[in-house]
């Protein structure tokens, strides 16, 4: 044991708020690794081989249930991979999968993750999200980059009535306040 220990803290200190019909909670313990690539086919091959998975196209996600792994396809040459954080170097875990087809960057500490769920979640998000979250348009599994209250956000629909929101760690308190205010304004 080292003489000095560093203690980890989550960006929102485990925020959890329950309202009538909507719950807002911080999601922690997820590693986030960015994979940039120049040759989609090459990475696709690597992913198929190691995960038996087809790489999703921009705006879509894919899951590997056995490894609790979620791939967010964010732009034509970049994906984010979310999975349980177990070690100090999640980027190296993904580098093993991507091989020389992907350039990995650890993003686990850069983002605050909030899940907004419940039957009132879409109504609440109408107040800050300019995207059309109608279930026929933004279907379960969809992902998009957008802006809420001037803050960059990645939004992913991970259930009929559940949305995972990712925003920058430094402004997480402002972001959480904006989300909670949106819920409070509609209930």
């Amino acid at each position: 044991m080292a003489e000095f220990d560093l203690i980890a803290e989550s960006p929102l200190n485990g925020l959890q708020r329950a309202f009538e019909g909507v719950t807002v909670e911080e999601v922690s313990g997820r590693a986030i690794v960015s994979v940039a690539f120049s040759d989609r086919a090459g990475l696709e091959q690597a992913v198929r081989t190691s995960l038996d998975l087809t790489l999703p196209f921009v705006g879509n996600t894919a899951r590997v249930e056995t490894r609790d792994l979620l791939i967010l396809s964010l732009q034509s040459d970049q994906i984010f991979v979310l999975f349980p954080q177990t070690g100090h170097r999640p980027d190296l875990e993904i580098a093993e999968i991507a091989g020389d087809q992907g350039l990995v960057t650890d993003q686990s500490d850069g983002w605050a993750l909030l899940r907004v769920s419940g039957p009132g979640s879409r109504t609440a998000l109408e107040r800050i999200c300019m995207l059309d979250l109608h279930p026929d348009i933004f279907t379960v599994g969809a992902v998009a980059r957008t802006v809420m209250e001037h803050l960059g956000v990645i939004i992913h629909r991970d259930g009929e009535q559940s949305f995972l929101l990712m925003s920058a760690r430094s402004s997480a308190e402002s972001f959480a306040h904006a989300v909670v205010t949106s819920v409070e304004n509609v209930i």
Binding site: F4, Q107, D109
Partner: peptide
């Protein structure tokens, strides 16, 4: 060019340690 960019401003907490004893301090960690 084969080059990719991503911001890691939020990923890393960074501190400057300055002064004649900076190394001695760091060596302890």
């Amino acid at each position: 060019l084969d080059v990719h960019l991503i911001s890691v401003t939020e990923q890393w907490a960074q501190a400057a340690i300055a002064g004649p004893n900076a190394r001695k301090l760091l060596e302890k960690l």
